[in-house]
Every structure is written in structure tokens, then in C-alpha cells.
């Protein structure tokens, strides 16, 4: 899952991103502490109650946060390849659009948009081609799963036109 391990080479500057991760881990630990502290600790007949395990996890996360910060200062984190932001934004936009449109526009249109925007993220710029393609494909999928297999997939104007 990693792209080769590059041990600390040139930089001795603290790795800002890694420090940020350490801060996030510490924040999660804090969140767990805060939420679990208001639980009733009544454990019944077991001393390990509903709060014990979350506290233990939070303590470990805190320890890992410190460890991460330590490695960040030593520059022990692997170097990261440069990431293209554009494609990620296209795909996230596609997923967000599907989420928001699903119940309004129905499965085919919402997922068709996701399809086209994902293809756009991978460099297929011709939306006038990929959008109809996606919608038709999703409609076929909808017919197979919603009509033949009775899976409940939200219907929209397009689906109601035919069924």
C-alpha cells in the first residue's frame, strides 16, 4: 500500500503534515475522553465497563500521537509523491453530486453524473459524451437491479418515464 520507503534523507525540518496527523490523533483521543466521561460507568458484574475500552483506546491514540510527532521532528516519515488535486476534486464533486441528487433526480441521473465526473477526473473531458453514456448505463443497471432483482434503488423522473 505504500510507494516505497524513503528513509529520512536530506531534510531535518519537522514534517508539517506529520505533525498535523499527530494533532488529529490527539484530538480524536480527546474526543473519546470527553464523550465517554459522561457515560454511566455502571458495569454490572464485570469491572470492565462500557468506558474502560474506549479509555484504553484513547490512551493508546495519545501515545501514538506523541510517537508520530517524534518521528515528524526526526523527519522519519516517507517522502510523498506530488498529488494532483484536480482529479480528486472532480471525483469528490461527483460523489457529492450523487449524494445530493439521489433522492431528487433518481438513481440513473445522480449516478450518471458521478460516472461522468469520475471519467472527467481521469482525463475524459468530453462531458457531452460521457454524461449521456453514464446515465444510459446507470439506467440499464437500475432496470436490472431495481426491476428484476427488486433491490430498492431510488427512482426519479427518468425511471418514472419508463416504469
Amino acid at each position: 500500500m505504500t510507494k516505497g520507503h524513503h528513509p529520512s534523507t536530506a531534510t531535518r525540518r519537522p514534517d508539517r503534515a506529520a505533525l498535523f496527523i499527530a494533532a488529529v490523533l490527539a484530538a480524536i483521543a480527546g474526543l473519546i475522553f470527553w464523550d465517554v466521561s459522561r457515560l454511566a460507568g455502571a458495569a454490572g458484574y464485570s469491572q470492565v465497563g462500557p468506558t474502560t475500552v474506549p479509555y484504553a483506546i484513547a490512551c493508546c491514540l495519545l501515545g501514538l500521537a506523541i510517537w508520530t510527532a517524534f518521528e515528524a521532528f526526526r523527519g522519519d516519515f516517507p517522502e510523498r509523491e506530488r498529488q494532483e488535486v484536480g482529479p480528486v476534486i472532480w471525483i469528490v464533486a461527483g460523489l457529492a453530486a450523487q449524494m445530493l441528487l439521489l433522492n431528487v433526480a433518481g438513481f440513473s441521473i445522480a449516478t450518471g453524473i458521478l460516472f461522468a465526473l469520475t471519467a472527467r477526473g481521469f482525463g475524459k473531458r468530453k462531458l457531452w459524451f460521457s454524461l449521456p453514456l453514464g446515465i444510459v448505463l446507470c439506467f440499464v443497471v437500475w432496470v436490472i437491479f431495481a426491476k428484476l432483482l427488486q433491490l430498492s434503488l431510488p427512482a426519479g423522473p427518468l425511471e418514472r418515464l419508463f416504469f
Binding site: I91, Q98, L114, F115
Partner: peptide, 24 residues
């Protein structure tokens, strides 16, 4: 080709999730 392959993966991945529990 990658664009169509991954567009298809996202289509089916979300289909599975929607089918199991169609909630935003």
C-alpha cells in the same frame, strides 16, 4: 481504459451501498 474502469467501479460501489441502505 482507466477513466471508464474507475467510473464503473464507483458506479457499482455506490450501487451496493445504496441497495443495502438507500440513505444520503
Amino acid at each position: 481504459p482507466k477513466p471508464w474502469l474507475y467510473a464503473g467501479i464507483l458506479l457499482f460501489a455506490t450501487l451496493g451501498t445504496i441497495g443495502a441502505n438507500p440513505s444520503v
